[in-house]
Write a protein that binds this DNA or RNA. Structure first.
Lengths: 210, 210
DNA sequence: CTGTCAATTGACACAGTGTAAAGCAACTCT
DNA sequence: AGAGTTGCTTTACACTGTGTCAATTGACAG
C-alpha cells in the first residue's frame, strides 16, 4: 500500500505532520505546508478550506494511524481499579510525546481560533472519558477516598494528565519521560487511591522519580 | 493623583489591561488598544515598539500596581515549613485570578513570539523562586519526604501552581475559586509534606473541596 | 474527440503589523 | 514675542499571511 504514493490530501497531512514534528517552534504557514507536500499553495485549499482545517485533519490522521484507542484499551482489561488507573496513566503518559508536536500547533491557535478550540476540546473530551472510567473503577472497588467527589476526581486526573502538565515538566523543567511518568503515576495513585497498601504494590515495580 | 489624567504610556497600559480583562476571547489589536486609549494607532508606537511590548509592559504595570511581592511576602513570615508552603500556595492561588486576563493574552502569543516567551518565563521564574523557598523551608524542617529531590519538588509545586492548571480547573472544568484553592492546598501539602499530623492541623480551618 | 478532474499559475481583497514623513498645537526658554 | 521642542495626529506605504477567483494545462475515461 505504500508502493504507490498516497493521494494528495494524505500527502498534505503527512507533510504537515512532519513539519509539526520538528520542534523548531515556528508554526508552518500554508506556503510551508504546500511546499513540503510538493503541491501548489492553492492545491491545499482544494482539499482543506482553511489552515485550521489542515491542522485539525492532521491530528485526526495522526490519531488514526497511531490508533490511540488500542493504546488506551489495555487499561480496560485491568483487574482492580487501582491497576486500571495506573495502566491508563501509563498509556496516556506515554502517548503524549508522540502527539506533542501536533498538540503544540493546535494549542497555539486554540486561543484565537474557535474551530481549533472545538477540535481540541473534542479530543480532550475523549481522553476525559478514559479518566472518568478509571475513576469509576475506583468507585466500584471502593478505593476512592470517601470524601472525594468522582466528578472532581476526574477533573483532577484529567488536569494532571494534560498536555500542558507534560509540557511543563518535560519541556520547561527538563524532566525525562521516565521521570515524568513515574511522578505522575505516583501522584495519581496517591491522590485518588486511598488504599496505600495496594499503592505500594503497584509502585513496587516502578523506578523512583529521583 | 487621579485628579490629573495620567500620561499617555500609562493610559495605554491601563486601556490595554481593561481590554484584556474582559474575557471575550479575542485578543486586542493595536487599533483596539489605540482606540481604547483615546490616541491614534501611531501614538502607541511612539511609546512601545511593538504589540508584544505593550502586552509585556502591561503585565509589569499590573504586577507593580497589584504589588505581587507584598501579597507573597506573608508566606515568608510563616513559622513552620508546612505553614509557609500553605501560605504561599494560598497567596499565589488567590493572585492568579487577578492576572488571568493578561496572562491569557501573553500565553496566546508565547508560542509564536520569542520576546513574549522571554517575558513570561521571567515572570514565572520569579514565582518559581517562591516555590523553591517554600520547599527549602520544608527541607530545613525535615518535613520533605526523605526520598524527594528538592529540585524536583520545586518543579512539581511550580507546575501545580501554574496558570494553566488554574485555567484547566476553574475555566474548563468550571470549579469555583474556593474549590480550586482548597484542592490545590490539599494537594501541595499531601505531596510535599510528609508530616500528616501537621497537615491535618493546617487543613483544619479550610473547607473541603467537595 | 470530448468531457472531466486535479492541479497550476497569477491576480486580488483583506487584515494586521510596523515604518516613515509631514503637519499641528501647546509649552518652555531666553 | 519668536524659536525651538515635545507630543500627538494624519496619511501613506511596505510586508506577511490568509483566503478567493478565474483562466489554463495535462491526463485520463468514455
Amino acid at each position: 500500500m505504500s508502493s504507490t504514493s498516497p493521494d494528495t490530501p494524505t500527502r498534505i497531512l503527512q507533510a504537515t505532520l512532519s513539519l509539526l514534528e520538528k520542534t523548531d517552534a515556528k508554526l508552518p504557514t500554508m506556503s510551508d505546508i504546500a511546499k513540503a507536500s510538493g503541491v501548489s499553495r492553492q492545491a491545499v485549499y482544494l482539499h482543506f478550506p482553511s489552515r485550521t482545517d489542515v491542522l485539525v485533519a492532521a491530528t485526526r490522521y495522526q490519531d488514526q494511524t497511531n490508533d490511540v484507542n488500542t493504546a488506551l484499551a489495555s487499561s480496560r482489561s485491568a483487574q482492580s481499579g487501582i491497576e486500571r488507573l495506573d495502566a491508563f496513566v501509563t498509556a496516556w503518559g506515554n502517548y503524549i510525546p508522540r502527539i506533542y508536536g501536533v498538540a503544540r500547533a493546535i494549542l497555539a491557535v486554540v486561543d484565537t481560533d474557535a474551530e481549533a478550540a472545538e477540535a481540541w476540546n473534542m479530543r480532550m473530551a475523549d481522553m476525559r472519558e478514559g479518566c472518568a472510567a478509571a475513576v469509576q473503577a475506583l468507585v466500584a472497588d471502593g478505593t476512592l477516598p470517601p470524601d472525594t467527589d468522582p466528578e472532581q476526581a476526574t477533573d483532577l486526573l484529567w488536569t494532571l494528565l494534560s498536555v500542558r502538565t507534560w509540557e511543563n515538566l518535560t519541556q520547561t523543567c527538563g524532566w525525562d519521560q521516565a521521570c515524568y511518568l513515574a511522578t505522575v503515576r505516583g501522584l495519581a495513585l496517591a491522590t485518588l487511591g486511598q488504599d496505600m497498601g495496594a499503592l505500594r504494590d503497584v509502585l513496587a515495580h516502578s523506578k523512583d522519580p529521583a
